[in-house]
Amino acid sequence: MDGRAMWQPWEEMRRLQGEMERLFGDLTPTWRWPLTGEYPPINVMRGDAHITVDALCSGVDRPTLEIAVLGDAVMIRGERKADPGAAEERYHRRERPLGAFTRTVSLGEPLDPDRTQATYAQGILTLRLARAPEATPKKIVIQN
């Protein structure tokens, strides 16, 4: 399929939003919550062999981080905790969101949980999801 000829309304909207943000300067936070308003925000990249999901979630307490794959959905769960050394009444500024989060995303293609890989580096959780064998594209040979 040649994607160049297709009208891509979401792509256009995203670019318009980007232009608006540039017009209004740097007031907006790193993440945008365009349609879902859920945490963590994710980027999805579909490759031939894998689907890669990047989730922007810095400072998650590692033992609380949990990833599950079921069918075509992936669930990310974790918690951002307050610094243990900080007494509640001694904060001068508190802008960073804290608390537990769960997000489930359906990717529309059956996934193979046994071949899922996850890494957490520099505050970005990267999931490398393998398609289930039955969902792997098969090349059809034309006979005659």
Partner: peptide, 24 residues
């Protein structure tokens, strides 16, 4: 783009501690 990271600042007896979210 360049943006302003979100921060927490708290005080202990001996120091000020600044935490900034800078994923990536």
């Amino acid at each position: 783009r360049t943006i302003s990271p979100r921060v927490d600042i708290y005080e202990t007896d001996k120091a000020y501690v600044l935490l900034a979210d800078m994923p990536g």
